[in-house]
Design a protein around this nucleic acid. Structure first.
Lengths: 250, 250
DNA sequence: CATAATCGCGTACGACGTACCCAGTGGAGG
DNA sequence: CCTCCACTGGGTACGTCGTACGCGATTATG
């Protein structure tokens, strides 16, 4: 009550002033967690396993991080650091948002297990903040801030929603320890049952089409993204107009 | 290996032919799980807790469900059953999709904890299939099936992405056992620190604006949804045209 | 009526996050 | 210089989780 009771993980100093020098570091621990999660999934990144990865005892991690949840918050921000938004806003909002969306998707595909960490309250980590500044900066010159938030919700909703679907199948497979062919073997009877019942014509159509989809996932994503950006463009006050009746930045 | 080895939860019959009559049922167990999750969050719905809720022993549940993961799959489909898509497709695709989106959001708000169950491989549950038929049926007359999938990805991406954000803050709060004011108390120093640093002008703008947002979350959602539907409309072959050059349903 | 399948469920195991404790260490105050 | 004590790493232990296994009781089928 009266003592420290730290508050936000980003406000808790990594190392106090006094005492012996710490052997490890938050960055090292976070990196180990990412490495394990990449290789074996996030649920394999237990405190004991992470500690072992860096050659520490399990309880030593708690000298650096107050709980596993806080460690995951660190990991999440570390992942956001992989998203390259250097030079944004560039003045070309469409190019900026395209790059951002592409970077986010690439990061998710590199670390599919973030699909399993439910987006939490804003963590206020440095990388998250950098993203906010750079990416929302792209539209900041064109719309007021609440409009900007609304449009970004559409964009990030689309990006995260679609890539989550791409990624969580793979995650689910790995988690269940099934190979893709094993999963198909298990699901096929059910699919066949549904198709043969004749009650699900659209589902059947999807199954039939699945064999010969002519667009790769990359192309599908880019195609949908273009549409979403068109949608955002339509909501922007036309830059070609002589004057905007709703000046965004007074 | 040689014996049953059931495959998909929906293909495993609830009750075999022989033996004594079961005391409970999948539906009863699923309902109990939903009840507990609504009241105390999904992580409180442990096997022991669910069993206690219906007055059974912990291990009895495994007579009905092969694992907790499968039970969650049952729960997920049960939630999809709450989404009312009766009478779809009605012929007015925009009305259908609006209703669907609104229903999905309402369901998420009733059961915020579904944000924590990562969307898995298609479970092929009856309610999920009903949704596919009804909702994708809305556009089926207008576009080929792969286009339909792409457009639905945009819609569901937006809906789930935005409502996930609405909901996961509340979930995170409950999970951490903090009240909203406690959370604010913990975060405020960090927010203040960031604002005062002067390095985050857009973040600062958001914080400032937060006090007087003039649109309710409902209105924000509807507003964004209209934009997404406009975006879908733009991708549809114009119904007013004399003939479509790409006949969707041969 | 005998048989075997299925019932509910008690016990037990190996994992998890982490509270608590203790011995060792090294910078600050004398 | 020595002394102190805030800090270090980490071992042990607790409560909880999902669930494997096996028991006696029950009941549809031969």
């Amino acid at each position: 009550m009266s003592d420290a009771e730290y508050v936000n993980i980003w406000m808790r100093p990594e190392r106090p002033a006094r005492g012996p020098k710490p052997t490890y570091s938050r960055a090292q621990i976070t990196e180990a967690a990412v490495r394990i999660a990449d290789a074996e999934g996030l649920e394999a990144a237990t405190m004991r396993r992470i500690a072992a990865e860096i050659g520490a005892g399990a309880m030593s991690l708690y000298r650096y991080v107050p709980s596993r949840d806080d460690l995951i918050a660190l990991v999440a921000d570390r992942l956001m650091g992989e998203i390259d938004v250097e030079g944004m806003p560039s003045g070309d909002w469409r190019a900026d948002l395209t790059r951002y969306a592409t970077e986010v998707r690439a990061m998710w595909l590199r670390h599919p297990w973030i699909a399993t960490v439910h987006r939490s309250l804003p963590g206020f980590g440095p990388n998250q903040l950098r993203l906010i500044e750079r990416v929302m900066g792209a539209l900041d010159a064109h719309v007021p801030i609440d409009e900007n938030l609304g449009l970004m919700a559409i964009l990030t909703g689309y990006v995260e929603g679609t890539v989550r679907e791409e990624v969580s199948s793979a995650e689910e497979l790995r988690r269940s320890g099934l190979s893709e062919s094993e999963w198909m073997a298990r699901s096929h009877p059910r699919i066949q049952q549904l198709v043969e019942s004749g009650e699900y014509p659209i589902f059947t159509k999807i199954v039939m089409e699945a064999g010969r989809l002519h667009l790769s996932r990359d192309e599908q994503f880019r195609h949908g993204l273009e549409r979403v950006l068109d949608c955002i463009a339509a909501a922007l006050p036309s830059a070609t107009g002589p004057e905007s009746e709703n000046p965004p930045n007074p």
